[in-house]
Write a protein that binds this DNA or RNA. Structure first.
Length: 476
RNA sequence: CGGGACGUCGUAUACCGGUAGUACGCCUGGUUUGGGACCAGGUAGAUAGGGUUCGAUUCCCUACGUCCCGACCA
């Protein structure tokens, strides 16, 4: 009977079908009326707000200020940097008519804000004393993707983009590294998603960058997800936008720049990585509701007692929801909150109040335990942190179990056919070899891990000498 | 953007060239509440536009949207 009510497909039987349904059913998001557009519903947006809170704090601590630049970019501005426009032109949305009249100059809906920001940077930066200039913005960008997927790839997505200008390459390079380390830390400690930090290959790097750092995590079914990158822009943009400054010694120099971004795609990764057949499983640190309290057949003073418990938890910063709906049965409440991935559920009825201990259920393990009434806050906090740790430990184990090494092309292909996952393999760093591997196996270079040891070997495909093992995978 | 599948109340589905049904949801009232409650009454639907036809939700075309497979990407 319970099965008949279920209309969520099993995650274990098909990730993409499960994923598409759970995003809608858990009310994280809905589709917009135009293709590829998404409505972030309150429950989903709340997750993003939690990410923002944490990341914004870290960004500001680093000395980066928030600002906001325009959505519309004159075409000529975007065209200034040759490789940048070349990289983005296939996916631009362009405004050609305004107020009913054809525009003299087309306006591009930003796919990213390098050009419009650096146009201003050129005016703002005159002296070495103006550096570093470090600005971040939380905004939306538009990229005309051919094939869309809710949260993972859409026409419009939300992100933050940080853009810094420095006097020296040492400084900008350190900034590039700082950003990816910050992302990795948030990813690990909040999303409970481990991954590899590494360098993008020349062909995979950002259009207009000298180098790109990425954080690559692995989804169930063995596909790679990249949801943040940090770029060393060198002087590419400062030269084309004339971001020049007078140095201490009086000479004119071009600024060294970085840009780095983290998008709502990460929410999709979160859903896929931790969810199960019962629905979402949210890591406590990013759960809009960390604890749901369900009173069972309580009224009057006894219900007040439960409300007091909720208040107590709230006072300690726990995000609590008290579900006092009278028209829903216990079972339907439990199922609903499980579907929505709430980490801890507290059941409080006459039984609990008499015994002086409430029943707590963990979403990740389904374990039930008993928490003494006089110890609710620390008991709950203990469960939340245990769950956060457990999700990370499971994800770590998954990543480790699905990172393989291949020393021959046959082995490489065999892994892709059977389990997928990440493959550590030698590559000659020749772009044509990379393209051939992609053509023949669908796998792309994901990154060269930042801590990859030097190791002499031969390219898994062409046999030429190689110094490092790169990580390959099939990307989303 | 190429190939394929699909589009019926909010959701999941059924039937049909001639009155569009069921379940869940939702609303009202009552009884209920320890793992998806029950009774009664009610609400709500053929994506849009053309064509064929006496008659189209059904057949055809186009657009739009979703999913899957490719090429492109956070």
């Amino acid at each position: 009977m319970a099965q008949q009510k279920r209309d969520l497909p099993l995650k274990s039987e098909g990730l993409s079908e499960w994923y598409n349904k759970i995003v809608l059913q858990a009310e994280l998001a809905d589709y917009g009326p135009a293709r590829g557009t998404i409505i972030y519903r309150p429950y989903g947006y709340a997750i993003w707000e939690l990410v923002q809170q944490e990341m914004d704090k870290r960004i500001k601590e680093k000395g980066v200020s928030n600002a906001y630049f325009p959505l519309l970019i004159p075409e000529s501005l975007l065209k200034k940097e040759a490789s940048h426009i070349e990289g983005f032109s296939p996916e631009l949305a362009v405004v050609t008519i305004g107020g009913g009249e054809e525009l003299e100059e087309k306006l591009i809906v930003r796919p990213t804000s390098e050009t419009i920001m650096y146009d201003a940077y050129a005016r703002w930066i005159q002296s070495w004393r103006d550096l570093p200039l470090m600005i971040n913005q939380w905004n939306n960008v538009v990229r005309w993707e051919k094939r869309t997927n809710i949260f993972l790839r859409g026409l419009e997505f939300l992100w933050q983009e940080g853009h810094t200008a420095h006097a020296t390459h040492e400084e900008s390079s350190a900034m590039q590294r700082w950003a990816i380390d910050m992302y990795a830390s948030v990813y690990r400690d909040y999303f409970a998603l481990p991954g590899y930090i590494g360098w993008k290959s020349q062909s995979e790097k950002f259009a207009g960058a000298d180098s790109s750092l990425t954080y690559e995590s692995l989804m169930p079914e063995g596909k790679a997800l990249q949801s943040c990158t940090s770029h060393d822009l060198g002087q590419n943009f400062s030269k084309t936008f004339n971001i020049a400054f007078q140095s201490e010694s009086g000479g004119s120099e071009f600024a060294w720049q970085t840009s780095w971004g983290f998008s709502t795609r990460a929410i999709g990764g979160l859903v896929m990585a931790h969810g199960d057949d019962g629905g979402l499983v949210l890591p406590p640190k990013l759960a809009p509701i960390q604890v749901v309290i369900i009173p069972i057949r309580l009224e009057g003073d006894k219900l007040l007692q439960v409300e007091k418990i909720a208040q107590e938890l709230k006072a300690q910063g726990v995000r609590v929801k008290l579900d006092t709906r009278e028209n829903a049965s216990l079972g339907s409440k439990i199922n609903e909150w499980e579907l929505k991935g709430v980490p801890v559920r507290l059941e409080i009825g006459g039984k609990e109040l008499d015994a002086g201990a409430i029943t707590a259920a963990r979403r990740d393990t389904s374990e039930k335990s008993s928490i003494p009434l006089n110890n609710v806050v620390s008991g709950v906090q203990g469960l939340l942190s245990a769950m956060q740790e457990n999700l990370l430990a499971k994800a770590d184990a998954f990543l480790a179990a699905n990172t393989f090494s291949a020393d021959s092309y046959d082995e490489f292909k065999k892994i892709l056919e059977s389990s997928r996952g990440f493959i550590r393999a030698h590559w000659c760093e020749d772009a044509s070899c990379e393209a051939a591997i992609k053509e023949e196996t669908k796998a792309t270079t994901r990154c060269l891990p930042i801590d990859a040891p030097e190791e002499s070997g031969v390219c898994v495909r062409c046999g030429k000498a190689s110094k490092h093992r790169w990580i390959f995978g099939i990307a989303y």
